[in-house]
Simulated assay, not measured.
Amino acid sequence: MPVPVAAARKRPVNLTLSEALVTQAKAYTDNLSATMEALLADYVAAQQGARRDRQRRVDACMADWNAVSASIGSFADEHSTL
């Protein structure tokens, strides 16, 4: 379960960002750290959602394949090398 961003312990980190981009961003926010943290939190949430979606698709595919296998068996079952 993710920790809410406001409740999480904060620590300084080093980032390498374009100086020109930082200058432009400061024109839009008084708190660049909070803005970057919010953007990073959104990115992480989107990536977690994408991972869950991929896993759901894999699970559905495996369930379908298992149903086919249970229903008609495997092609390889008819071709034993023993």
Rank of each mutant, 00 (worst) to 15 (best):
Q47C: 11
T23P: 08
F75E: 06
F75H: 05
M36T: 03
V44K: 13
S74A: 13
M36W: 00
R56N: 12
T16S: 07
H79M: 13
P12H: 11
E78D: 12
H79N: 14
M36S: 04
L21W: 02
N31S: 14
V22R: 01
V68C: 06
P4G: 02
T81Q: 03
T23H: 12
W65M: 13
F75S: 06
E19C: 03
Q47W: 00
A7C: 11
L32H: 15
V3L: 10
A20W: 01
D30F: 07
E37A: 15
A25D: 00
A7N: 14
N66L: 13
R57H: 05
S80W: 04
A63E: 11
D64C: 09
M62K: 14
P2F: 10
A38H: 02
P2K: 13
Q48W: 01
A45Q: 11
D77W: 07
D64K: 14
A70I: 04
H79T: 11
A63F: 03
A63C: 04
V68Y: 05
N14F: 10
N14D: 08
A7E: 15
K10E: 07
C61T: 11
S74R: 15
V13P: 05
L82W: 05
A67Y: 02
D59F: 01
A27W: 06
L21C: 04
M1W: 08
I72S: 09
R57T: 03
R56G: 08
N31E: 12
R54L: 02
N66V: 06
E78M: 08
A45C: 08
L39F: 01
R56M: 08
P12C: 10
A27R: 15
A7R: 14
Q24D: 15
A25E: 00
A41P: 06
R54E: 01
R52N: 03
M36A: 09
A70V: 04
S69K: 13
P12T: 12
A63I: 03
S18M: 01
Q24R: 15
T29F: 05
R9A: 14
V3C: 10
N14Y: 10
V3I: 15
D42L: 13
R57C: 04
T16E: 04
Q48I: 02
Y28F: 13
V44G: 08
E19R: 05
G49D: 06
Q47T: 09
Y28K: 12
V13C: 09
P12M: 11
K10Q: 13
E37F: 03
T23A: 12
M36N: 02
R54D: 01
V44L: 12
R57E: 04
A70H: 08
S80M: 07
T35A: 09
A60Y: 02
Q55Y: 02
Q47R: 09
R9I: 08
K26C: 10
